[in-house]
Design a binder for these strands. Structure first.
Lengths: 108, 108
DNA sequence: AGAACATTTGGCTATTATGCCAAATGAAGG
DNA sequence: CCTTCATTTGGCATAATAGCCAAATGTTCT
């Protein structure tokens, strides 16, 4: 058992914050939801968003850096895939938590 | 069953984003963790943070607006309480999700 | 090689978030 | 009522984020 140093604590906080920050944007959250069922190429994703392609690309890039999605090239297109589908269940949990204020919701 | 309009979708996204944004800051996340076991007054919380009291106060105020904590006055002090303890389990889940990439983690 | 397509990157501006200080508020006690 | 203690609020300077356009990259097809 490591002695949990202040630095390690800080590191742990920052890791979590990185993921939260990545998800904390309407467009990015929408993108993640689109990837829940299947992988998609950038052009498909862009169609559903009211923003420049370059903007969407940057959002996806940010999600990739956060480890939430991965990408793979297939011909001219690049496909994005959700690495951790369970994150979305977590978001439903957030809503339930706030609405019901039930301490034991979300299965823990 | 309501027909899920584009506006409603947007609203749902924004609600979730509001919570994520509130949690997406190292100090605020730390504050929330401190409140996991018991309520605390501002002075207790301030002791553990390297930041001005006024800064901590603003963070707490932001968390309150997001519906994550509530506050109550007792004499000179104001006590903050975590409204939804299960949110923290969710955060552990984030870590597990990213480390293990297990689709079915987090119990969903 | 050159054109066409899909996506990313650079750069710039506008908006938003952060954090400190100082001043204001509110409660308790002399 | 005046002081002290705990906390919040206002204001401001600085940093981080978002989004658009234009240019660059990488791929396929001819």
């Amino acid at each position: 058992m490591k002695p949990t140093t202040a630095q390690a604590q800080q590191q742990r906080l920052n890791n979590r914050v990185a993921v939260l920050k990545a998800l904390a944007h309407p467009t990015r959250l929408w993108l993640v939801e689109q990837l829940e069922q299947q992988e998609r190429c950038v052009c498909e994703l862009t169609d559903g968003v009211d923003a420049d392609i370059s903007t969407v690309s940057k959002h996806l890039s940010l999600l990739r850096q956060a480890g939430i999605v991965t990408s793979r090239r297939e011909g001219k297109q690049i496909y994005y895939r959700l690495e951790t589908p369970c994150l979305l269940g977590m978001l439903t949990c957030i809503e339930t938590a706030l609405e019901t204020k039930t301490p034991g919701c979300c299965g823990n």
